[in-house]
Design a protein around this nucleic acid. Structure first.
Lengths: 146, 146
DNA sequence: GCAATTATTACCGAATCAGTAGGGATTACG
DNA sequence: CGTAATCCCTACTGATTCGGTAATAATTGC
């Protein structure tokens, strides 16, 4: 299991898009400035998010990114898995050495499975809309740039 | 958040100790052979487990390691945190850049906090005794070396 | 004393992380 | 039509971590 800066930055970017949902595309550069994310790094994250079906891109001048669905229909799980890969295959790497090399006969397996399930549950039941709500409250009471 | 081979190997080793709980110390070499863990690597893990208060060492010939308490009183959380460090400080690394550099004002923070709490809960409510039960069933129905 | 065992420290190759860089393709706008 | 803005793709890089090895010292049972 790994949660890296990709998830952190990527989720913030998706939240930002949710705040502008319905107002046309937002450029990666704009989000990078507003959320203080390294711009070239963010570009890469958007590529992954597009491939994961979370955002779609509008190319050319005045282009940018748009969420593919209503923020309430997008879960944190989709964002995290687009950026980091599947959670299942990454706890205790049950994939890599073809099932811990103890495949099936690993006494610890049940607890790793429960851990993955718990994480998936948290991420799957949290929508982007929910987090965007937090963001708008914070943006309102901040030295706002928006 | 990170779960690496340390946790996998370390948990298996602690489970092995639980299976022999009450019969004196078990050497790292013996466990390494039985559970197919690289022996020198396992030695390092035992150092961390000792510092975490999970095992105590008996030095010298016929020495080895013993659980500090009854397996039912030791949780997976203790083992994992001894080996990987605190779970809290490792989801989205809320420690490193002094709180995401957005400290307090991070719209994504609640979901990371929930994720950590969910993981902690799974690990804190699973005892070593529970997993040792699995192990003994598997050892019984295997081409046993024990 | 000797053999078995843990303790400590250092080291190493490979992979991953967190970005950076350079160029190309596409499109709005004047 | 030209140009600037924007996304797209590939490659590169320095730092860190991972997974593990090695050498050596300290401790203890026999």
């Amino acid at each position: 299991m790994r949660l890296t800066a990709k998830s952190e930055y990527g989720l913030l970017a998706v939240i930002d898009l949710a705040c502008s949902f319905g107002s046309g595309p937002v450029s990666a550069r704009e989000i990078a400035e507003r959320r203080e994310i390294p711009p070239r790094f963010l570009e890469q994250l958007f590529v992954a998010l597009r491939r994961g079906g979370v955002v779609s891109a509008v190319r050319g001048a005045r282009g940018g990114f748009v969420l593919t669905r209503d923020p309430a229909q997008i879960t944190v799980l989709e964002v995290v898995e687009s950026l980091e890969g599947s959670l299942e295959t990454s706890v205790c790497d049950s994939e890599r050495s073809s099932g811990c090399a103890r495949s099936g006969a690993c006494a610890a397996a049940p607890v790793w499975a429960k851990a993955t399930a718990a994480l998936r549950d948290v991420f799957a039941t949290t929508s982007i809309a929910e987090l965007a709500g937090n963001q708008q409250i914070m943006d309102a009471s901040a030295p706002g740039k928006r």
